[in-house]
Structures are given as C-alpha cells and as structure tokens.
Nucleic acid binder design. Sequence first.
DNA 1: CATGAATGAGACTTCATTCAT
DNA 2: TATGAATGAAGTCTCATTCAT
Lengths: 240, 240, 240, 240
Amino acid sequence: MTGAAAALTITDPQVIKMSPTPETHARQRRKEARPQELLDAALALFVEKGFAGARAEEVAQRAGVSKGTLYLYYPSKEELFKAVVRQTLSSLIAEGEEVAAQFEGSSADLLGELLNTWWQRIGNTPAAAIHKIMLAEVRNFPELAQFYTDEVVVPADRLFCSCVQRGIDRGEFRPLPLHEVAHALMAPVIFMAIHRHSFGACPVDGGVDVDPALVLSTHLDLMLRGLQVRAPAPRRKAPR
Amino acid sequence: MTGAAAALTITDPQVIKMSPTPETHARQRRKEARPQELLDAALALFVEKGFAGARAEEVAQRAGVSKGTLYLYYPSKEELFKAVVRQTLSSLIAEGEEVAAQFEGSSADLLGELLNTWWQRIGNTPAAAIHKIMLAEVRNFPELAQFYTDEVVVPADRLFCSCVQRGIDRGEFRPLPLHEVAHALMAPVIFMAIHRHSFGACPVDGGVDVDPALVLSTHLDLMLRGLQVRAPAPRRKAPR
Amino acid sequence: MTGAAAALTITDPQVIKMSPTPETHARQRRKEARPQELLDAALALFVEKGFAGARAEEVAQRAGVSKGTLYLYYPSKEELFKAVVRQTLSSLIAEGEEVAAQFEGSSADLLGELLNTWWQRIGNTPAAAIHKIMLAEVRNFPELAQFYTDEVVVPADRLFCSCVQRGIDRGEFRPLPLHEVAHALMAPVIFMAIHRHSFGACPVDGGVDVDPALVLSTHLDLMLRGLQVRAPAPRRKAPR
Amino acid sequence: MTGAAAALTITDPQVIKMSPTPETHARQRRKEARPQELLDAALALFVEKGFAGARAEEVAQRAGVSKGTLYLYYPSKEELFKAVVRQTLSSLIAEGEEVAAQFEGSSADLLGELLNTWWQRIGNTPAAAIHKIMLAEVRNFPELAQFYTDEVVVPADRLFCSCVQRGIDRGEFRPLPLHEVAHALMAPVIFMAIHRHSFGACPVDGGVDVDPALVLSTHLDLMLRGLQVRAPAPRRKAPR
DNA sequence: CATGAATGAGACTTCATTCAT
DNA sequence: TATGAATGAAGTCTCATTCAT
C-alpha cells in the first residue's frame, strides 16, 4: 500500500461555499454579485434536492433576494439549472492533466497521486454533486449531455488512460484495454463521492458505512496489484 | 479470466413476460396480470422520468388502466416504487445469496459468476436505473432511503462481503477490509449500468465508448489479481 | 332532588345493534334480511362518520355484502341515508306520550320520570346519533326536515309542553311560556346525548367530563326549583 | 327576570367588517384585508357545507381570489378552520373571561350578562354553526377534536364554572356540582343557536317556533331560581 | 341477484411564473 | 431593478357509481 490515501482529510461534506458579500457599497456590489450568488444558491439546492425538488423560491431566499429577482436574471428554472452546470464544470477539469504531465515517479505512484487528488478536489466538493445531478437529469436536459461529455467525461478518461498507457509503455503495467481500466479506476471513487451526496446525507439506520480513506487505499492496492506486471515489491526491500 | 463476461448479448431491455395463464375468464385473467403490468409500466416510467417526475396517471395509462385502478393495487406512489424495487432488485439479491451459498468452486470463480449475473440481470435491464433514481432522489424521500438501504444496499453489501470473506477464509484472498473491497467490486458494474441509462441514452459526439463485456472482464481480471494471495496460476502451462 | 336520576345505568355507548342473523336457511333468510342489515350498517357508519365521511364500501362490508349489492337495494348514498333516517325515526316516538297520559303523581315527578326515560330510551341509543346527524345534515337534505319535524320535533315538544301545562293547571308550576320551558328542559339532555356521539367518542386530553347521571339530576333539581310555585318541600317533612 | 334578553334584534348574521384603512397602495390594502376576507368566506362556507363539504376553491372564490392565494395565507384547510374558530369563538370566550373577572354585581346578574352576550355574539351569527360542525365531524378529524377541546370546550366550561363557583362562594348560590350546572346553563343557548343553522334554515310547516329572547329569559329565570339559595326577592314590593 | 374490478370526476395541495407596484 | 402577492396548471389520492361476469 503506497500510502496512497495519506492526506485524506474527510471534512464534513460542506458542499457549498456561499460567497458572503462583506457589506461594502452594498447596492453596487450586490448588483454585480447577484448572478454568482444565485448560481451558488442554486447549486447548493440542486445538489440537495435535485432539479425537480429544488424550489425557485428557496433558491432566491438563499441568495437573499426575492423570487421575482431570480427571474430577472434567469428566465426559467431550466435555464438556471443549465447555467449552474456550465459554470460549475467550466472551472473543474484541467488541473489533473498538468500533474500527470510533470510527474516523474513510477506510474503506480502517479495513479495513487491522481486518485487522491481526484477525491480531494472533486469527490469531496460540489463537483461530485454535479455529477450526481447530471446522471440523474441528463435525460431531461439532453443539451447538457454534449457539454458534459466534452468538458468532463472525455478529459477525465483521457487523463486516466494516458497514465495507464504510461505505465504500460514503461513496462510497469500489463497491457490491458485502456478505457476499461480507466473506468475500473475511476468508478469506485466517483461512486463513493456521489453516495456522499445522496444516501450519505440521509439519516438511515444500519446503512453500510465505508471509510473513504480506506476505500481509496484498498481500491488502489487492489488495482495496482492487478495492473502491475509483478506484484509490487515491498517498499523497503526493493530499491532497484 | 475465462472470458467470464462471455455471452453478453446486449438485447433490448426486456422485462419479464408473464405466460398468459391457459384460459380463465377474461376479467379474471386481467386481475391476476394487473400487478405485473402495472409494475412493468411503473419501472419503465420511473426509469424515464425519475420518481418525482413519473406521474401516477401515466403509469396507469401505460398499463392500459385508469388512474383509479393503479391505486387499487398500490396505495401510493411510494409503495408502487417499493414494489418495483422488490421485484427487480431484492429478488435478484436473494437469488445471488442462494448461488453464493451453494457455490462449490473457487472464490474467484464465485465473484466472477456473481458480477456476470449482476450485469446480465441488472446492467442490461431498466433495473439498473433504479439505483440512479435512488441516488438522485433519496434526499427528497427519506422513507425510501431507509427502505432501499434495508432492502438493497445492505443485502448487496452483505452478499459481496460474504464472498470476499469466503475467499479469505479459504486462503484464496488476502485479508483486506471487507466493505471497502465490496465497494470496489460493485462500483464499476453499477456505475456502468447507471451510465447506460443516463448519458448512454443521450446522443453525443465523441463520447467515451467502453465495451461493457470488456469492462467487466478487465475489472474482474484486475480485482482478482489484486485480491488473490498469489497471482492466478496461468491457465495452461505458462513458461517462466 | 327527587331521585330523578335513579336507575341510570350508563352502559358503554353501544350505539348500534346489528341483527346477528343466526344461520338458518342462509340464502333465503339473508335475502329478506338484506335491507335491514344494510340499514343497520349504514346507521352505524353515518353515526360514526357523518354523511360525507361514511364510505359506501364500508357500509357494504359491515353488512357482509359487496359494494355492488348495496346499490342493488339503494340507488345512491343519498337514498340510503334517507332510508336510514326514516326507518330509525319511525320507531322512536310515541312511547312517552302514553307514560304522560297515565301518570298519576306530581308534575315534578312526571317530569323527572320523563327526562329519565328520555335519556335511557333515546339519549343513550342510536336515536340520539340520528339527531346529531340531522342537525349536521338537514341543510343538505331539506326533504328530511319536514319529516323529522313531524315525527320528532313536534311530538317531543308537545309531550313536554303538556307536562308543563299539567303542572301549571294543577297549581304546581308557575305560569311560564310552554315551548320555551320545554326547550330549556330538553336541551341539556339532548345536548349531552349528542356529545356522547361526537366528542365523547374522540380521544382527547383534558376534555370536560360530566357525569350523565349527575347532569340529569342536577338539571332536574334546578329546573324543578325554577318551575315550582314554591321550592319543593323537603321530602321527609312534607307528607301531603 | 329583568328582561335580560331585551334588545335581541335578530338581524342578518353580519360578520365583522374591517374599516378600510385610509389610503395605502391598493395592493397593500388587499394584503392586509385578505386574511379577514378569507376568514369570512370560510366561515360562511363551513356553515353552509360543513368542514368536509366546504371546498377550498370555493372559499377562495368567495373571497375573490384564486385557489393558490388561499394557501398563501393558510397552509391547509384544517388550519383555515382553526383560524376561523379562533377568530369567532376563542376571542369571544376570552372576552367573557374578562367580563367575569371584572364584574362587580351579583352572580345572578353576571350569569345573565354572560348568557345574553353569548347569544348575541354567537347564537345570532354564523359562529353558532361552528359547534354544529364540530359535533358532526370531529370523529373524522381527530386533530380538530383536540384543538377545539383545548380552545373552546374547556375554556367555556371554565368560564361558566368559575361564575357558578363565585356565586357559591358569595353565598348566593346553593352548592351544586359545577360542571353539571355549567352544562345545564350553556346547553339551551348553544342548542338553540345550532338549531337556527340546521332546521331553522329549512322551510318546514308546523315546526315548533320558539322566541329566542323568550327562551333566553325563561331559561335564565328558571336557572337562577334553581341556583339561588333563596328565591330572588321580588323586584318591587311583592305582596306576601 | 351478487360480485368486485374498473372508472373518472373531483378534492387538496404545490410551485413555476407573472405582474402591478 | 426589485418585490412579493397572485395565479392556475398539474399532481396525488379518494370514492361514488357502473358493469361485465
């Protein structure tokens, strides 16, 4: 086990960050900040309740404006939803790719690094919730499908595929079908992230409780053993 | 892996068809067939629209009956949903438990058997979408959260945990945290199944296209290598 | 206090008497008894739930027949209701008048006798419940108003008026307006009877609980003192 | 009796009319008047149709607003009903308590005052029908039973009991069971009020017609004679 | 006559959206 | 711009009544 799940600070899932406008030039500042505040509030609510379950009035309330004002900025709940998805996603990807490009160590360590970053930057933030929403609602908003595919699905797949390819190229990993491996790598992490926003937020008796850090390290352990040409040599003994 | 996911014929999601009982009064025959017809219609609609989005009247319509008739058989939308879950998932899990209990072969083969069955019976049918629905909407229907946890999540976890435990007990698998391993085992299959019913149902250009059968076999390959005490002996005389 | 409320056995308000057909010539007997059984069941339910609250199906159930059968005998819920009222009332009145006509004692004692009989024969039986229903529903069934007035209101009034008149004629009672006195005499008893069928049947915390026997005797005590020319002489001292 | 029920003008049941606030924005004025308008409409409809029979939409219509608006002010039909009760009965009882607390005269006069006020404020307005509704429908609405008991039945009983107690304490009245006396005091008034809204609203031939004012004064006359330790001294020099 | 499955009008309630102020 | 009162379509569920068997 590569200490993969090291710095996993499982903070309370504080999904949303409201930008708390610190009273200055109240009127002016507010007016400019409005759209962002509305999007923040909407994100929070869509995450909590899904599209159908989020009420326009509550979005407005959380943003500190009246219902009418919401409609001044977004002509309908649908448009609001799309705006939320677009703006949340646009700032998400592209971090990982850089990490991967510059990484020097073993491909095993790179994957560990990636999955950990993934979890910390995405799994534990509103981004994961967006994925949940998308899964749930794309069929009602097909326009978003393409957008999400381009912005999230493809880049993420490319990222993981390239790492696996790197491992294979360097003789570290067995040759295996890339996309499928990438799927197996990402799924448990994404799945866990999503669960935190659904069942994880419900008060149920006797649910299955997994330790995220342990899931992550176990998953990594399993995958690396499965991927590597030879079982990873024990850390201490194997300088090579 | 022995081509575990071999005969994966991705047919149209075909729901169980009741063999029409020989010959009784027409009325009588309807009476008996009704629940199944309603359940089928409900499953289809829940998959399309989600729980909140599915209208009771449309369920009835699709089953070819009036609104009132639906309520003759299921006292509320929630109960209807529960019935759908019981029919599609609970029974399947129960079946899996039986298979596991009677299985004689290696634990590796048992897991392979289980995952394949899962995929064939869930991944490939509308049943998969149920979990999507739950992920998306539990927070709005707390009672369903408890129900689904009791009826599906916990039993499924127990099923896979017990298989892993079996492998450990028999010295086939390394000792690893059960729940976390179960999570890593199930997630890619469920995740893939879910995707087929969300993004998979939307026409997008350039999406990531994985071959389900290949995902399944690759996942199994990776996991078993990861789980087993020693890398699985090469099937036929391997050199080296 | 004239021992007025003597034999007040406050049994459990067993409102309805189902005629429990003792299985003989089942088919035949049943067929003839049907209407009566239906009326009994309907009475019970109307008393419990009122007109709107009583469901046709439950009436049928209690009568041991199917919903369809009910409509074979009564073409609608309204007609059923009217039939219930008519048949219950028709057998009610006319007892008291006889008692009054033959009474020999003082008018005070006569009133006591009357109120007690009233309570036992009416206040504590379905008859009282019918009065409750009538009060509640006449406005929706004006046809019943005339009927009820003729069969119940007028005779009851006449009965009590004649007693009061008797007292006045014999110099026992002060001359007072007859109808108004009759009202004051009957109201508390009827009122109490009605309450037993509404609030009395609800599980409330901290309700006002009066002892029917005590209400009756107190009421009589008050009224007689009020009515009589001189306060009733203490029993012992006053032979004459 | 001092013509206690003197100026009983039986006018059309007129509900409180809000004096339209001087001049604000039309919208604003409506906003303030709405609750009252809705309450008025609701009272009228409840009286006509009962609780179950009154349709929310019609209440709204009569108040000149749409269905949705009603729910803007009262979250459910039950709450609407409660509000009506509070406005019409609770406030009246509270008022009575105050009168009783500050009353200086004889307890006989206090009771007279109370009953007269009651009749004028309840018996003569739609408010009386509320008790009728409760009698008829409590069993179907258990929550209302508790509410009404707490809000009306118990306070009213307490009010009258305390007056009787006052009379006993001051040596004016004979010691008698409080609750039972209170019952005998209130019943004829309430009963008469109820009748006005049921049978009284139906056109019948040959019904018993009592003069409310006369009922009231006769009832009071009888009760006070019955209650008082000695028969009330004749007002002017009575012979003998 | 009897049954009980089926119907569908209609009740309560919610909430996205509009619009007068 | 901003507000929030008002709207009314739509959804869940009930139940009196019908009718094929």
